[in-house]
């Protein structure tokens, strides 16, 4: 039997077709310092150059024999394209991710430009996808977008948005509607670019911040609209932070897979949702890949994800680029080897 490519493995996973082993990929940022060093570029530069972005993604995957790549790396691209600026920290020491310096401060100020898709770094990200597809046709290509609520929090002050959820319900609902359309348009755009999957990250909406009741009325319905609109490419509903209280509602939004972080009790989630649902997660990337020194501990964490019933082992959040290479090695190797056994939703050949 011929070996699958990473791309085929990921495609089959989403179709829940039997596999040789668990694919090793992620829908969260997966760029590592070892790859960036190979590029000979500082961290700040890989966000502003399509070639560096694409090649650092591919190199990260190749170094550790992963099945897929994801770009971009920061969550500020869309806000920047809407004219909210970008802080790149070019002179800072160490790794600092780009952030949005100039969010809208009131609902009245908000004015989403029509042409944002062609502004800021969004064309550069498109270019990176094209390079990746050309240079690494064997790898699964993942795109990601922010969920409507999290995107809203990137373009306007989050505290105003949060308070508005209670005090200015109607105005906020109109605004969230608008932003939902942006998320949908972006998904359609990436679908047209021919990515293999899209992860919708509604990361600021766990119950660390919002009540399950608010989630039900303000987050769920918009996410459902997004997933209903993505028809040609598999999509993942990712939320980090506390999700135990909302996991069933997440499931009802209709994505092809759910992704959660280390705060979710996955064994329980499996019981609640059954074995047919694709679930990805849920190790703490910083602790597991950057901090731990004992490889046996890294291995145990990854094995636990698999034993708890993950169909793919995803980090709960972006991988912090400054990983220990041996931890990355252990993580990916454990997925490839321990992941030879079937997972709840996906059989093995």
């Amino acid at each position: 039997m011929s070996e699958f490519t990473g791309k085929q493995r990921v495609q089959k996973l989403f179709k829940r077709e039997p596999l040789d082993r668990m694919p090793c990929f992620s829908g969260q940022g997966t760029v590592v310092i070892q790859a960036i060093e190979k590029m000979g570029a500082p961290f700040a530069k890989i966000h502003t150059d399509a070639k560096l972005m694409a090649e650092s993604a591919i190199t990260s995957a190749r170094l550790f024999n992963m099945d897929g790549v994801v770009v971009p790396y920061d969550m500020a691209t869309v806000a920047e394209a809407m004219g909210r600026g970008i802080s790149l920290y070019e002179n800072a020491e160490g790794i600092i991710y780009p952030t949005v310096p100039d969010k809208w401060k009131t609902l009245e100020e908000i004015d989403i430009p029509k042409d944002y898709m062609t502004q800021g770094r969004l064309p550069l990200v498109d270019e990176a996808f094209k390079i990746i597809k050309k240079e690494a046709p064997d790898l699964a290509v993942g795109a990601w977008v922010l969920g409507p609520f999290t995107l809203a929090g990137q373009i306007m002050e989050l505290d105003i948005l949060l308070k508005g959820l209670k005090k200015k319900k109607d105005e906020i609902a109109v605004f969230l509607d608008q932003v939902t359309q942006v998320t949908i348009d972006l998904c359609k755009h990436y679908q047209e670019l021919g990515v293999d999957f899209i992860s919708v990250r509604e990361m600021g909406s766990g119950t660390d911040l919002l009540s399950p009741r608010m989630w039900k009325t303000l987050i769920g319905p918009n996410l459902k609209k997004v997933f209903d609109s993505i028809t040609d490419v598999p999509c993942v509903n990712h939320i980090c932070g506390s999700t135990d209280m909302i996991i069933e509602m997440m499931h009802e939004c209709g994505a092809d897979a759910l992704s959660v972080d280390q705060k979710n009790n996955v064994a329980e989630t499996r019981k609640k949702l059954g074995n047919d649902v694709l679930i990805f997660g849920n190790f703490d990337p910083y602790n597991t890949l950057t901090q731990l020194e004992d490889q046996a501990q890294v291995e145990a964490i990854i094995k636990k994800c698999i034993d708890d019933g993950q169909d793919a082992v995803w980090p709960g959040c972006d991988i912090w680029p400054d990983v220990r290479p041996e931890n990355m090695e252990t993580y990916t190797k454990t997925v490839r080897e321990y992941g030879k056994k079937p997972s709840p939703a996906v059989g093995r050949l």
């Binding site: 949060l162 308070k163 209670k166 660390d208 911040l209 919002l210």
Partner: peptide, 8 residues
Amino acid sequence: YFVPEVLM
């Protein structure tokens, strides 16, 4: 209470 309430 969740964060929105606390902020208010």
